[in-house]
């Protein structure tokens, strides 16, 4: 696990020595309070081009506040938020594609009308700010007319886009959720944003649709954009290059999934009657999870597990296995809660 520390100003771009471009997102020592409540506490976060960063945390951990700070919907109390090297502004917003959890689509407009609207929103902005816009390479393409952008949204190479095209005159409220999600993606991607901000991007869709949405995210990122994704689910966390874990406003861990798991382990318990083993371990107050017919005690030490099983007179085989990311996450977040 790599704890976030002081980073050079171009921290996220450090891996690209040839390019002096600043990271897409640079959050440095940002604190944001609401009254006495510290929603975000000295948080650091970097998203560079070509990477998918996952933001995880329990509810109330500060994820939403951090996202709103990055989107420019809130201002930090302390610290600095930089998007593409500058404070969030209208200019940074035109380089941003945002898919909120609620999708942010107009349900009483058709598919085409939604795409036209977001294309217009970004195209108009491109014209009115062209004079003062920096020579951003990718966003120059956002100058395209609305019609172009709409055509691009449909014209992608993805085979699934045919479904959207077939539904182009339907009202969004009449579409199934999977298609709505795809439309939200198409609307957010049509102006070729440099940064994607996705809040639980694939909730409620089936596994194939989820895989296809992630194909789209990866394709966008490999085209040079960066993505910041919040999620509660491991199916999504494992898609990210790097994860940032928050608890109680503080970034408690960041790095690759493998690095965050590190050497964490779990005790796996295999009993002839898992119910009996469960009851014994439950009574001992150990952290406990069921996995099929196996039981797992994340972070638990063997001795306590053995003792608990002996107390319950349960015969079981136990072995030490690497912890899952979810187990590591829960252990970290719970430890943080109990310390404070």
């Amino acid at each position: 696990m790599t704890q976030s520390g002081e980073m050079p100003a171009n921290g996220g771009g450090a891996s690209r020595p040839a390019s002096p471009a600043p990271p897409l997102v640079a959050v440095r020592a940002v604190t944001r309070r609401f009254g006495d409540f510290v929603a975000v506490d000295a948080a650091d976060l970097t998203v560079g081009p070509g990477e998918v960063v996952g933001l995880l945390g329990a509810n109330g951990a500060g994820k939403t506040t951090l996202i709103r700070l990055i989107l420019g919907l809130l201002r930090p109390g302390n610290g600095r938020v930089r998007l593409f090297g500058e404070p969030p502004s209208r200019r940074t917003r035109r380089r941003l594609g945002y898919v909120p959890q609620g999708l942010g689509l107009w349900e009483d407009l058709t598919v085409t009308e939604n795409l036209e609207f977001s294309a217009d929103a970004f195209a108009v902005a491109a014209h009115s700010t062209r004079a003062d816009a920096p020579a951003a390479t990718r966003s120059a393409r956002a100058d395209a007319s609305a019609a172009d952008a709409t055509a691009r949204a449909y014209g992608g190479a993805e085979p699934l886009d045919a479904d959207l095209r077939a539904a182009r005159d339907q009202l969004v409220r009449d579409l199934p959720l999977g298609l709505r999600r795809r439309l939200a993606f198409a609307a957010a991607l049509a102006h070729h944003p440099d940064l994607l901000v996705l809040d639980e991007p694939t909730s409620g869709v089936d596994p194939l649709a989820r895989a296809r949405l992630w194909d789209t995210i990866h394709a966008t990122v490999e085209d040079g954009a960066g993505a910041l994704v919040t999620t509660h689910y491991m199916d999504e966390a494992e898609q990210c290059d790097r994860l940032v874990v928050m608890a109680q406003g503080v970034v408690i861990a960041q790095g690759t999934m493998r690095a965050i798991i590190g050497a964490a382990t779990a005790v796996e318990v295999e009993a002839d009657h898992w119910e009996a083993a469960f009851a014994a371990l439950d009574a001992a107050g150990l952290p406990l999870a069921l996995a099929g017919r196996l039981l797992r005690v994340p972070g638990g030490d063997q001795a306590r597990v053995r003792a608990a099983l002996a107390t319950g007179a349960v015969a079981a085989r136990i072995r030490i296995v690497p912890a899952t990311f979810e187990e590591t996450f829960v252990t970290l977040a719970t430890a943080r809660q109990e310390n404070s």
């Binding site: 209208r90 200019r91 917003r93 107009w106 929103a121 902005a125």
Partner: peptide, 11 residues
């Protein structure tokens, strides 16, 4: 509908 926020993040 949550679309006001979408308008807010559009330029």
């Amino acid at each position: 509908a949550g679309t006001l926020e979408q308008l807010a993040v559009m330029p």
